[in-house]
Amino acid sequence: MAFRKPKPVPFKSAGELDAMAAAGAIVGRALVAVRDAAKVGVSTLELDAVAEAVIRDAGAVPSFKGYHGFPGSICSSVNEVVVHGIPSKDVVLAEGDLVSIDCGAILDGWHGDSAWTFGVGELAQADAELSEATRLSMEAGIAAMVPDNRLTDVSHAIETGTRAAGKQFGRTFGIVDGYGGHGIGREMHMEPFLANEGKPNRGPLLVIGSTLAIEPMLTLGTEDTTVLADDWTVVTDDGSRSAHWEHTVAVTADGPRILTPRP
């Protein structure tokens, strides 16, 4: 039988990647502003206002706000909340909290999507290592964004990065089940879905201009989560803390290009 070349992960022109990077740079600025504002006694609703102001002042639109009814411009996920935490005046930051902020912006119809995890004041060692392990897993996934790799080569790289970080820190990290990255461009969430673990060399082909949001989510315990009654907030079933790092990344001839740079 004839061998069919796998279809490509959707790709953009060089100019379109520049347009995505312009949106992504606004996301990066918003994330930095939120981290700077994240002090003891500040609510996640206040952090949301900081992000929305940065995005709108730049002439962009928060992509999360109103997305399937989501009320915020950021997802603010504290401690055992993995992702999709709703900003609230009732969630007030305390010393040692582990905070994951996910943010998106639309500029001229193009989307940027990025997330990171940081501590309020001094973090416990385990929590600091969890965040660093998640960042390292993301970096491993980014490094696999090269022409002629397949989609699951990125998944496998993220998983391998997680296991390597576990060895480095002498602990086992849970890879959150059922969540992962995604295609991105003129919509925030597009095909294909990018798992954070799996066997290599499967799925669509990465070509120059292919764009993916790469976003590992790790925990200090379980891989299992539950969505709360608000239909958004995802929490670890064992109450263990979670971290989330994400960049929007493009495949280029010169290597992976991060489209959500932070100042």
Rank of each mutant, 00 (worst) to 15 (best):
M1N: 09
P8Y: 00
P10R: 11
P10D: 00
A14V: 12
M20K: 07
M20E: 03
A21C: 10
V27A: 02
V27S: 01
A33F: 14
K39D: 04
K39Y: 03
A49C: 02
A51F: 06
A53S: 15
R56Y: 09
F70T: 02
P71Q: 04
S73I: 01
S73P: 00
N79T: 04
V81S: 09
V83K: 10
H84D: 12
I86N: 03
A94Y: 02
G96N: 02
G96R: 02
D97M: 03
D102G: 14
C103P: 06
G104S: 12
I106Q: 13
G112F: 09
S114T: 09
S114H: 11
W116T: 04
F118S: 00
E122L: 11
Q125A: 14
A128T: 05
A128G: 05
S137W: 14
M138A: 08
A140C: 07
V146L: 13
P147G: 09
D148N: 14
T152Q: 13
V154F: 03
H156Q: 10
A157G: 07
E159Q: 11
A165M: 10
K167Q: 15
K167G: 12
F169I: 00
G180K: 12
I184V: 11
H189I: 15
M190N: 06
A195C: 06
N196M: 13
K199A: 15
K199W: 10
S210A: 05
L212G: 01
I214D: 00
P216F: 08
T219S: 15
G221N: 10
E223G: 03
D224F: 12
T226K: 15
L228M: 13
A229D: 14
V235F: 07
T236G: 06
R241W: 03
S242V: 02
S242K: 05
H247M: 07
V249Y: 05
G255Y: 11
P256Y: 09
R257M: 11
R257A: 05
P261R: 01
P263L: 07
